[in-house]
């Protein structure tokens, strides 16, 4: 038993050393790490493309329905997409002192709902690939799946769930944004682990390896994003009540409660 414990401690300390090493070597967690062009084998790239399509179709349907009713919201969605792109190019201070880029997943999902975010997320990822070489065309399916599907749906679920449980507004927003961001990278790690099982230990070992790099290191950054999202909502509720009301077209009742205000 004692030997086991020592082994465990060693493992954990090694892991911590590993994470710290990554921080030192790569302090700027570049662009939230989309899977780069050509990194996924053909079959996996195709698999994620196919997995993405039904969600995109659902998103397109939902957007179409909304913009037929309110034609001006098409322009709003377009500009929101541009905003997300610009936001992702800004540096966010991390609670550990390094910096990264906000994903805007939580903010976008709470404002526009997960279905619209899938389509916006995909388009923003296309532009990031073609204009900034972050992510890629073959890996668009995988990246959209993590950032445009898993991230937003997790955010949305947590936001709605916590609200239903009577959690304060700021907490719901914080948790939605933080976990939405984090789950995006957990998904990325799973995608990479599935594609590249380790020679010893297989998929599980590989997923863990990737998580220790892409997800654990993301925790402080996810918290930063959560804080930032809460702060942005505080400003929005103070100054942009009218605009927030417009958005109920996307999210139904979800947003109406924001009227009552967020207090952090």
């Amino acid at each position: 038993m004692i030997i086991m414990n020592q082994r465990m401690i060693k493992r954990i300390s090694l892991l911590i050393a590993y994470v710290l090493a990554i921080y030192i070597v790569f302090p700027d967690n570049a662009y939230g790490m989309h899977i780069m062009e050509g990194f996924l084998p053909f079959n996996w790239a195709a698999f994620w493309w196919i997995a993405m399509i039904p969600f995109v179709i659902a998103g397109v349907r939902s957007i179409k329905k909304t913009v037929t009713l309110y034609p001006n919201l098409k322009m709003l969605l377009g500009m929101a997409g541009a905003f997300a792109f610009v936001l992702s190019a800004l540096k966010i201070p991390s609670v550990t002192g390094s910096c990264s880029h906000p994903t805007g997943v939580g903010l976008g999902t709470i404002l526009f709902g997960p279905a619209a975010m899938t389509v916006l997320g995909m388009i923003v990822l296309i532009f990031q690939a073609l204009l900034l070489a972050h992510g890629g065309i073959t890996t668009l399916g995988a990246n959209t799946f993590s950032m445009g599907i898993v991230g937003p749906f997790v955010s949305y679920g947590i936001y709605r769930g916590l609200k239903k449980l009577g959690a304060p507004q700021w907490l719901s927003i914080f948790m939605a944004a933080t976990l939405g961001d984090l789950m995006t990278y957990v998904t990325t790690s799973i995608q990479l682990g599935l594609a590249f099982p380790a020679a010893s230990g297989g998929v599980m070992a590989s997923v863990l390896k990737f998580m220790s790099i892409f997800a654990f290191t993301q925790i402080p950054l996810a918290i930063s994003e959560g804080l930032l999202t809460v702060m942005v909502f505080n400003i929005l509720t103070a100054y942009s009540q009218k605009e927030l009301q417009v958005l109920t077209a996307f999210t139904g009742k979800a947003l109406s409660s924001i009227k009552r205000g967020v207090k952090a």
Binding site: N72, M79, F83, P102, L107, S224, M231
Partner: peptide, 30 residues
């Protein structure tokens, strides 16, 4: 952006100012 706290404050102001623009500009464009 001189300290962590002011970075957060500046960035959240910047984001919400931009978001405000999104609302205004989109109506103007329409």
């Amino acid at each position: 952006y001189v300290s962590m706290k002011s970075s957060f404050r500046s960035l959240s102001r910047l984001s919400s100012a931009l978001l405000g623009k999104v609302f205004v500009k989109s109506q103007e464009l329409y």
